[in-house]
Design a protein around this nucleic acid. Structure first.
Length: 491
RNA sequence: CGGGAUGUAGCACAGUCCGGUUAGUGUACCUGGUUUGGGACCAGGGGGUCGCAGGUUCGAAUCCUGCCAUCCCGACCA
């Protein structure tokens, strides 16, 4: 076990908190609920951004930037939206400070009160739709496919690094379309993009589904989501894609002339993923030794540790390493040569394991003599000695294997933790003793969902897309139901 | 926002109950040396507004009040 890192089995929550700090991903700041994302953590986020950004552009979207501050009045234009967000908005009321008369520091200047207060965006639908009103006149202006990378703020009561912070980084796509079917297709397309990213880059299997009315985004007609399962059996919503119908178009009066010169409200979507994905990434794969990163998102994919006595040996090793490093870099594999002199190899091994580097190479005098290198993989901790001749191919193959293996491991865990329940007792027992997703019949009402949540703390994570239809009785009320939905305790 | 706990060096903690020399230990850090195939050792050294602000007192890490932050439990949520 890594020094000072609690074991997952002892205290999952403490394990996560400590891991985030010890692996140099993030730390708390002086302001409650806000975090400092450290260089190593930010490097992972940057890789996520780069990948997603390319996927967005490949599907026809362009980036733009809308302001942080939103006039308070905008929020109230869409009734459900204000209900959903009003309780967690930070509000700017003044624009100036002054020196306190008693010399105790600065105070808010009461003279500098804003006529209209501003809110710090909790999401940007309102500013964006008020802007779209001016951008859209004709069907020729549609579809409008815009994304922005931004920070948002929601005044959270209980925060945890990455999983729930008051300020977080995300991307929010906002699109406008001429027809309902096109907007729905966009919503689903972006859900597919998210699922693709989660599974093929993060190595996190997800269930694609639609949210119940209770869990729906404030202001949306339908909210689609990808739900992931963490190693403690709890669910984590990893991304959402909303079909907004004409709700925001009507609230902000965004109309276009169709081909017959008839004025119509446009159809909208919005979709986002946030730094919460970092939490998902950490919790999906990591172990008691530290982070386990998927090769495709690891800032450092290969670390090389020299084992030497004296400068001469180090120089000889460095010479060999330089060659390997160059070859790997030519294949876009990021390599770190850890030649820190003050630390011993054992320490470095543990240190890079904590940081989740997928592949570690160790080279010492013995290897120099034999033309070999020792290669260890982070996910299984297997260690083998390889000939230097084809080390590049070996590493390439290993990175692919690791990416596939950690996905498979997470997939197997999830599959073994989706359980059917047919009685409420069974349901409660599974929730208590096994965790994971519970597939159960539900009568389709918000009241039942609320009641089950109150009794068990489990919520309906989603109704899976392409769900199998099956006659059954609601687990709680016994009323008829046509399909099972997925319940879980969630982050 | 309600209940509980905590806050002393970068980190982990002792000291606080019962106020009184120069605030201590481990680890990390710096210098020198010996080491180096799984978290090295020896010697020397630096680092503290004791969370912040008031108050009580001859004297406060210690007692009182307020505030801030963190963790756990609830309500809220991506």
């Amino acid at each position: 076990m890594a020094k000072g890192l609690p074991k997952r089995s002892d205290d999952y929550s403490a394990w996560y908190n400590e891991l985030v700090k010890k692996a140099d991903l993030a730390e708390n700041s002086a302001v409650r609920g806000c975090m400092v994302i450290k260089p190593y953590g930010y490097a992972i986020w940057e890789k996520m951004q780069q990948t997603l950004d390319k996927m967005f552009k490949d599907t026809g979207h362009s980036n733009a930037y809308f302001p942080l501050l939103i006039p308070k009045s905008y929020l109230s234009k869409e009734a459900d939206h204000v209900d959903g967000f009003a309780k967690e908005c930070a509000v700017v009321t003044h624009y100036r400070l002054k020196n306190a008369e008693d010399g105790s520091g600065v105070v808010v200047d009461p003279e500098a009160k804003l006529d209209e207060e501003l809110i710090v965006r909790p999401t940007s639908e309102t500013v964006i739709w008020s802007t779209y009103k001016n951008w859209i006149q004709s069907y020729r202006d549609l579809p409008l496919l815009v994304n922005q990378w931004a920070n948002v703020m929601r005044w959270e009561m209980r925060t945890r690094l990455f999983l729930r912070t008051s300020e977080f980084l995300w991307q929010e796509g906002h699109t406008a379309h001429a027809t309902e079917s096109e907007a729905i297709a966009e919503t689903k397309q972006m859900l597919e993009v998210y699922a693709d990213f989660a599974e093929n880059f993060m190595g996190v299997p997800v269930v694609k589904g639609v949210k119940t009315a209770n869990e729906r985004f404030a202001g949306a007609v339908d909210t689609f989501c990808i739900e992931a399962m963490m190693q403690d059996g709890k669910a984590l919503q990893a991304g959402t894609s909303h079909f907004l119908g004409q709700n925001f178009a009507k609230a902000f009066d965004v109309k276009f002339s169709d081909k017959d010169n008839k004025l119509e409200h446009v159809w909208g979507t919005s979709w986002g993923v946030s730094t919460r994905l970092m939490g998902a990434l950490i919790m999906a794969h990591s172990d008691d030794e530290g982070l386990v990163l998927p090769p495709k998102l690891a800032p450092i994919q290969v670390v090389i540790v020299p084992i030497y006595k004296g400068q001469e040996q180090l120089d000889a090793i460095a010479e060999k390493v330089k060659v390997i490093q160059k070859e790997l870099q030519a294949l876009n594999i990021s390599v770190k040569f850890d030649d820190r002199d003050a630390l011993r190899p054992g320490f470095k091994f543990a240190d890079w394991e904590l940081k989740g580097v997928p592949v570690r190479m160790a080279m010492g005098q013995r290897d120099l003599e034999n033309g070999t290198v020792e290669i260890a993989r982070r996910d299984t901790k297997e260690k083998n000695t390889y000939q230097l001749d084809n080390v590049v191919e070996t590493v390439q193959q290993l990175l692919e294997d690791i990416q596939a293996n950690i996905y498979q491991k997470a997939f197997d865990y999830r599959e073994s933790h989706i359980t059917k329940a047919d009685t409420f007792d069974e349901f409660k027992d599974l929730l208590e003793n096994k965790g994971g997703f519970i597939a159960a019949h539900w009568d389709g009402t918000g009241e039942t969902e609320d009641k089950i949540k109150e009794l068990t703390k489990a919520t309906i994570r989603c109704i899976p897309l392409n769900n199998e239809q099956e006659e059954g009785a609601c687990i709680y009320t016994g009323k008829p139901s046509t399909q099972r939905v997925l319940f879980a305790k969630a982050y």
